[in-house]
Amino acid sequence: MENRAHIRVEGLNVHFGSEHVLKDISLSIPDRKITAIIGPSGCGKTTLLRSFNRLIDSSEGVRVSGRVMVDDENILDARAEVTHIRRKMGLLLQRPYPLPMSIYDNVAYGPRIHGIRDRRRLDEIVERFLSKASLWDEVRQRLSQPASVLSLGQQQRLCLARGLAVEPEIILGDEPTSALDPQSSQRIEQTFTELKSDYTIVIVTHILRQARRLADHVIFLYLGELIEQGPAWDFFNNPKQPMTREYIKGLIS
């Protein structure tokens, strides 16, 4: 990969109690590309994603070792400041979780906690990021309504706008379309393709076709081990590992 790596993972191990969930993972995620993390369910995709922004800290009985370098800072370092790390990454979960407040306040939530109070600036931020998430036209008339009135697909785009509003460099998505209907999924995918010129995007997916459609770079996990990673074209057309070959075939047929 000739591109600069935005996230570099070195020897990452994660244990939950006695269970060894991620085993000595080393990988790199290229800057301003879409990287897909694929693998069967339970193989540790979510765990890997959650170690990128240290959300994994709040899990019960978790032990993490190794290094995760973002912009040359080891974010797993005990001295690293988590709120600062998390600001660099927007997160989309498997299901949209809008905050219990209005559409406007959802997007303004992040900027507000980071100190922006000026109403005009907030208005401008809300409009800009709702547009980026291609939701502005649908909600401009009802910004003060509760976020829960939106459809699931709209809620997921709202969550995207909310994440973008803290001006991250990276977008993390944990199967972000799995709760959505095909049309809403397609809109999210389309938005991702539009965003990748400005952001590094990492999505977890168990849908191989989605990975094929979107990904520039693919990471394949199996039972907590990294099996193969590489540019999407090579990965799908010329896999090096026999296991990758089987996985690709198995899910296609």
Partner: peptide, 8 residues
């Protein structure tokens, strides 16, 4: 988590 992820 959604709130933490925004740096709250």
């Amino acid at each position: 988590d959604a709130s933490y992820a925004l740096g709250a």
